[in-house]
Structure formats: structure tokens, C-alpha cells
Design a protein around this nucleic acid. Sequence first.
DNA 1: GTCTATATTTCGATAGAC
DNA 2: GTCTATCGAAATATAGAC
Lengths: 204, 204
Amino acid sequence: MAPNTDQRPRPERRGDETRERILDVAVELFNEQGYERTSLRQIAERLGVTKAALYYHFKSKEDILLELHLRLHAVGRDALEQLEGLDDEAVVAAWPSLLDTLIELLLANRDLFLVNQRNRKALQAFAEDGRHVDAGQDIEARFGRLLADPKIPLERRVRMAASVGAVVATLAAGEVFGDATADDVARLARGVARDVVRQPGDAL
Amino acid sequence: MAPNTDQRPRPERRGDETRERILDVAVELFNEQGYERTSLRQIAERLGVTKAALYYHFKSKEDILLELHLRLHAVGRDALEQLEGLDDEAVVAAWPSLLDTLIELLLANRDLFLVNQRNRKALQAFAEDGRHVDAGQDIEARFGRLLADPKIPLERRVRMAASVGAVVATLAAGEVFGDATADDVARLARGVARDVVRQPGDAL
DNA sequence: GTCTATATTTCGATAGAC
DNA sequence: GTCTATCGAAATATAGAC
């Protein structure tokens, strides 16, 4: 193979590694303090570099949060693609299985999830300021449309909203259950989710 | 009765009325944009006064949020006093009834609730900076201790966390259920909450 | 009680050396 | 790729007139 004559440093090299570390520290701080209360100075200090260095890797503070949003979407992309083309009724039918997937993903990417959940306002502000965050296939937008669809019985929709709330609250509480392994909590969360979606009147 | 010779303007007069309006506008804007993204200039403009006027009524921006926090506590005080002296096991027993109260209060003070829920980080930051927000009888702290109590079976604790998450998510979703009256949503929320707390193995 | 005007601080972002 | 130095904007907060 010919030697690498590319002037740019190879991707997946030292540079991208620093980029990763920036994102890691950002997730930490955004979760501890929130996005708005976290300054670039804090991120830089915890990382042991200067603010200006951050600007080499990201063109703005918003871009850091936006990148974290994209990563969450990447995590849920497989699940999202399964829904492509399905109408709302079909999504309702698939809901119990979707909740299991949600629990699994939430457990494996807890911090990333929480950052996105706790900074919804900031993300939606960017979107309104012209920045498109996927537009049509945004997962949250689709969920909102689902809850508004009058073709689905109200109780079904309420229980969908409640099931997500129950799961997120349970896994966000996470380590307050001092004892308890992650697997224990996940198993119990699945049980709760099942009880929420299975409404009275459903066939057993 | 002798004429009022007090130099200060009477309480519950024009002054407190403006104070109320400030809090009302603050709740609106904090819910629309979040606490950190809302500037005092915006509050003043929507109110038709200047920033300086706000500082006559509140000594800082934090104080506005803190006041809203105190109001929420005032709303839930009756419910909280019922729990005084009860040990954790007794609270668990009272949980189903507490959830009904939560639903009722949440529905009657939706905006106030949401501001406090969405700005938890900011409030807890103030508390750590020396400002005491009740210390011992803070409702959220008590809830956290309850979830950590190993004397309560894990599944019970998980279901308590999940029930609150389900209720809050349902009522926060609120108007996305385009049709549906508040009463409908409240009734369905009670049903869901009941299904969450009543775990398998409980006597019917 | 509300105003105008301004002080003070902090933050995001850029320029240019190394 | 990271640094020093700094800019400009915006925010909180204060001083003092009315």
C-alpha cells in the first residue's frame, strides 16, 4: 500500500480523540449543572485546555449540544427505522416492544439521554432559529404527533405518554436505589411499563 | 378606628399587585424558554415596565425563581403536613391516596409545577450556594430518602418513582391531547397511577 | 414605585503567535 | 492543535432623579 500522502492528519487519530473527550466532559457538566449554566471555561478547565482549543473542534457552544443530540439519534436510529412507513395505529400495536427497546437503550446511554431530556428547551430554541435537527424524522416530534392523533383512543394515548414517563423516571432515578443492580431496575421497569400499557378492557 | 398613620403603604395594595404580575409573567416566560434563557429585560418588557422596577420588588433574579419555589411548597403544604411524623413504611401505605392528591394539585397549579420541575438544577444550585430552601422538610429530599430506604422492598420503591413519573408526564403533556378535557386526563391519570402502584402479588 | 443611566461581570467568540 | 490576549454583546445589578 502506498504511504499516506494526505496532508490532513488521519481521521480517528489524536484529533478526534480530543473531540471525544470534550463531548464526554460536556455530558458530565451539562448533567451536573445544565447546558446554560455550564460555561466553555468550565469545560476547558476540567479538560485541562483553554477555551480557544474548544473552538478548534467545535464552531460554537450550541454545536456541542447539537452533536450530543445527533449521537442520541444515532443510538436510537435502528429502532426509529423500524417505525418508518408505519401508520400511527401500527406504532401503537408495536408499543410494548418499543418500550423494551427504550429501556435497553436508556440503560446503555443514560447520561446521553438525560442531557437531551433536561435541555429540551435549548435544543428546540436552536431548531426554531433555523438550525434543522432532522426536521421530519425527529423522534420527539413524531411522538408528539402520535399523542395528538384523534384516531387513537384517548386512554391509549395517555397510557403511551405515561409509560414513557414511568420508564424515564425510573431509570433517571437510577442510583438512588442504592442497592439494586441495573439489571434489577431494568427488569422491574419492564414490568411497570407492561402494567401501564395494558389498559383495562384489553384482552389477556 | 384611628386613621392609618403608618408611613409604609399598606400591604396587599398596589405594590403587591405588581409583585403578583411579575411572578405571573415570570412563570409564563420560564415555562416558554426556561429560567436561564429568560432575561429580566424580557420580563420587564412583557410587563410594560423597566428592569429597575423589578429590582424594587425582588432583590435578584434568583429570588424570583425562589419565590415560585416557595409558592409550590405552600400549595403542597397541607399534603406534606399529613406526612409529618410518619415513618417511611406508613408513607408507602398512604401512597395511592398521595398520588390522587398529587394529580389534583398538579392540575390546579400546572404552570407552577412545570417551572419547578424544569429548573431543578438551578434551584439546587442556589441551595448549594448557601441559600436554604427549607432544608429538612424539602419535599424532593424526602422523596429521595424514601426511594433509598432499603427497608422498603425494591419493587415498591421503583413503582413509587414510576408512578410519579407517569403522572407528571401525563399532566405535563396536557394540551397535546388536543381534544380531551382536563377532567378526562385527570381521571385517566388516576387509573394509570393505580395500575402502577398496585404491583403483582398485592392482595386485591 | 418607577424611571434613566450606568456600573460590573461574564460569556461566547475571534485573531494571531507558536 | 493549543496557546495568549482581547473583543463585543448581553446580562445582572446599582445609583440616583422624579
